[in-house]
Simulated scan of single mutants.
Amino acid sequence: MLIKTENVKKEYMSGKKKNLVLKGVNLEINAGEKIAIVGPSGSGKTTLLNIIGLLLPATEGEVYLAGKRASTLKEKERAKLRNKFFGYVFQEFLLVEEDTVFQNIEIPLLYSLTKKTKSEKRKMVEEVLEKVGLEVKINEKVRNLSGGERQRVAIARAIINDPEVILADEPTGSLDAENGEKIMDILESLVDKGKTLLIVTHNEAIAKRCDRIFRIKDGYVEIEE
């Protein structure tokens, strides 16, 4: 079992009112699976993804990552998992517009515990750019890229440290159908090579391309095989 959640709950305060978004989520995810997380807007899809990815704490419950209980990990261990175990593809790309493609993709390497030489980093960036078909754009400023190209840069950045799990939040949401297909093809090719994919999407066609669908409804998850 690669990822497991036990009775995960998440509560937010809205003024003086408590809003329980996740009411008790129990999931088990195996290595190499392709999982879609779907549900209405505001249902807690991104919240669940971020709790699994150690970007948000759960209000209650437990997350296990490769057998490790997340709540018992020291911050240094959690940071290591965020840097090496997970690769994040954010909904808004979160790229630095004024920097080059190379500079954006090397960011996770700067925080890696294993330090790389300048030539090693260059080689690693070139290799991931080749995987997403953007090697010719390595020195291009991000501001000059199209939406589809930016998303591919975001994926390249997510996989630069060779993570076991890719967490993708609406990776095709702002793209047209053609570019959306290209992004899914890239993500699926990574799963074919042994990666695990958790993808938040509102697109039912994309969800159906996955092995299983986790459908969030009223704070709980219904699993569709």
Score class of each variant (00 low, 15 high):
Pro40Glu: 11
Ser41Ile: 05
Ser41Trp: 10
Ser41Tyr: 11
Ser41Arg: 13
Ser41Phe: 09
Gly42Asp: 12
Ser43Glu: 06
Thr47Lys: 00
Thr47Arg: 00
Thr47Cys: 13
Leu48Cys: 04
Leu48Glu: 05
Leu49Cys: 04
Leu49Gln: 02
Ile51Gly: 10
Ile51Thr: 12
Ile51Ala: 07
Ile51Met: 10
Ile52Ala: 02
Gly53Asn: 11
Gly53Tyr: 04
Leu54Val: 03
Leu54Ser: 11
Leu54Met: 15
Leu56Cys: 09
Pro57Trp: 01
Ala58Ile: 01
Glu60Gly: 10
Gly61Cys: 04
Gly61Gln: 08
Gly61Trp: 04
Glu62Gly: 09
Glu62Lys: 15
Tyr64Glu: 10
Tyr64Arg: 00
Tyr64Lys: 05
Leu65Asn: 07
Leu65Gln: 08
Ala66Cys: 11
Gly67Tyr: 13
Lys68Gln: 13
Arg69Tyr: 07
Arg69Thr: 09
Ala70Leu: 06
Ala70Pro: 00
Ser71Lys: 15
Thr72Gly: 05
Lys74Glu: 13
Lys74Met: 08
Glu75Trp: 00
Glu75Pro: 03
Glu75Asp: 12
Glu75Ile: 00
Lys76Thr: 09
Arg78Lys: 15
Ala79Ile: 04
Leu81Asn: 09
Leu81Ala: 10
Leu81Gln: 09
Arg82Met: 08
Arg82Thr: 01
Asn83Trp: 00
Lys84Thr: 12
Phe85Ser: 07
Phe85Lys: 02
Phe86Arg: 00
Phe86Asn: 01
Tyr88Gln: 10
Val89Arg: 02
Val89Trp: 01
Phe90Leu: 13
Phe90Thr: 07
Phe90His: 12
Phe90Ala: 06
Phe90Trp: 06
Gln91Tyr: 06
Gln91Ser: 10
Glu92Pro: 09
Phe93Glu: 10
Phe93Ser: 05
Leu94Ser: 10
Leu94Pro: 06
Leu95Lys: 02
Leu95Ala: 11
Glu97Gly: 09
Glu97Gln: 15
Glu98Ser: 13
Glu98Ala: 07
Asp99Asn: 13
Thr100Met: 05
Thr100Glu: 14
Thr100Ser: 15
Val101Ala: 08
Phe102Cys: 03
Glu106Pro: 04
Ile107Trp: 08
Ile107Tyr: 02
Ile107Pro: 00
Ile107Phe: 05
Pro108Arg: 11
Pro108Asp: 12
Pro108Lys: 10
Leu109Glu: 07
Leu109Lys: 05
Leu109Ile: 07
Leu110Trp: 04
Tyr111His: 08
Leu113Phe: 12
Leu113Asn: 14
Leu113Pro: 11
Thr114Arg: 14
Thr114Asp: 12
Thr114Phe: 13
Thr114Val: 14
Lys115Phe: 05
Lys116Pro: 02
Lys116Arg: 10
Lys116His: 15
Thr117Phe: 06
Lys118Ile: 12
Lys118Asp: 14
Glu120Cys: 11
Glu120Ile: 02
Lys121Gly: 09
Lys121Cys: 14
Arg122Ser: 14
Arg122Phe: 06
Arg122Leu: 14
Arg122Tyr: 14
Arg122Pro: 01
Met124Arg: 12
Met124Asn: 07
Val125Lys: 04
Val125Gly: 13
Glu126Lys: 14
Glu126Trp: 08
Glu126Leu: 11
Glu126Val: 03
Glu127Met: 13
Val128Asn: 08
Leu129Pro: 03
Leu129Asn: 05
Leu129Phe: 03
Leu129Gln: 04
Leu129Met: 08
Lys131Tyr: 04
Lys131Pro: 05
Gly133Tyr: 05
Gly133Asp: 12
Leu134Cys: 10
Leu134Tyr: 01
Leu134Ala: 03
Val136Gln: 12
Lys137Pro: 03
Lys137Val: 02
Ile138Pro: 11
